[in-house]
Amino acid sequence: MPEPTPKPRDALDWNGVLAEQLEWHWNHHLRRRFEGLTDEEYLWEPVRGCWSVRPRGTHGPEADGAVQLGAGPFVLDYADPEPVPAPVTTIAWRIAHLVVGVFGQRNASHFGGPAMDYAGHRYAGTAAEALDQLEEAHARWRDGVADLGAEGLLRRCGPAEGPYAEASLAELVVHINREAIHHGAEICLLRDLYAHTGHHGAR
């Protein structure tokens, strides 16, 4: 049987390839693993000193330089630079990071999304609200990437990306997809630990 003739590079739908990199994982793995997330799981702290999302005024971990950021009734534990070793973070923290730092800031810079930063975001106090925020941020990213076209992928990122200003949007898409898959897998692992450890956490 003859081998298939490979397509020339310029005949590939690179927008489709990059979209599928994340979308297959999101639709066939992550989304179903996010289903049924409870508020208790969302805020579960598996070890002492976790970073999380907390009601404003609630005491967080005493890490060097740690602050609490947020514009609403819930705040995010945060430090820049982060402590060494980096703290373990809850599902709530990881979803917030995806919403703000992974998708949200890039949606604002490149796809017409609302202004987004860690200090100004209104963090979700419940799992359902957090997942709604995540789905909205992901959908804007997905649609924005799909609309770039071949020429858009070659456009440089610009000053919004700081030291990566001269990188192409294609390189940014690969990076953000990788970040989303990585942090999504961390959330899945925390759900597994929650289910298999009798919910034992910080003491």
Rank of each mutant, 00 (worst) to 15 (best):
H175Y: 14
L190M: 09
Y194L: 12
A180I: 08
A180S: 06
G184A: 05
A180Q: 06
G201M: 12
L189F: 07
V173G: 00
H200Q: 14
R178L: 10
L190C: 01
H199M: 04
C188N: 03
I176Q: 15
H182F: 15
L172F: 08
G184D: 03
H199P: 00
L193N: 00
H175I: 11
R203M: 12
A185F: 09
G201E: 09
E171M: 14
I181W: 11
L172W: 07
H182P: 02
I176G: 00
H196I: 07
A195H: 11
R191T: 08
E179C: 11
G201A: 08
L193Q: 04
T197D: 11
G184P: 04
R178C: 03
H175W: 14
I187C: 03
A202E: 15
E186L: 13
A180W: 09
L189E: 00
L172C: 11
E171T: 09
H200S: 06
L193A: 01
H199Y: 04
E186F: 08
H183R: 11
I176A: 04
H175N: 12
R178S: 06
A185V: 11
L190V: 02
I176D: 07
G198S: 12
L193D: 02
E171Y: 11
R191Y: 10
D192L: 11
H200F: 13
A202I: 10
E179I: 14
E171W: 15
R203K: 13
H182W: 15
A195K: 12
N177W: 08
I187W: 00
L190Q: 02
H182A: 09
N177S: 06
E186T: 01
R203S: 13
H183W: 15
A180P: 02
R191L: 11
H196P: 00
Y194R: 09
E171P: 01
T197P: 04
H182I: 03
I181L: 15
L172K: 07
D192K: 06
H196T: 11
L190P: 00
I181D: 02
R178N: 07
A195V: 06
E171I: 06
H175F: 13
I181K: 06
R178D: 08
C188L: 07
A202Y: 05
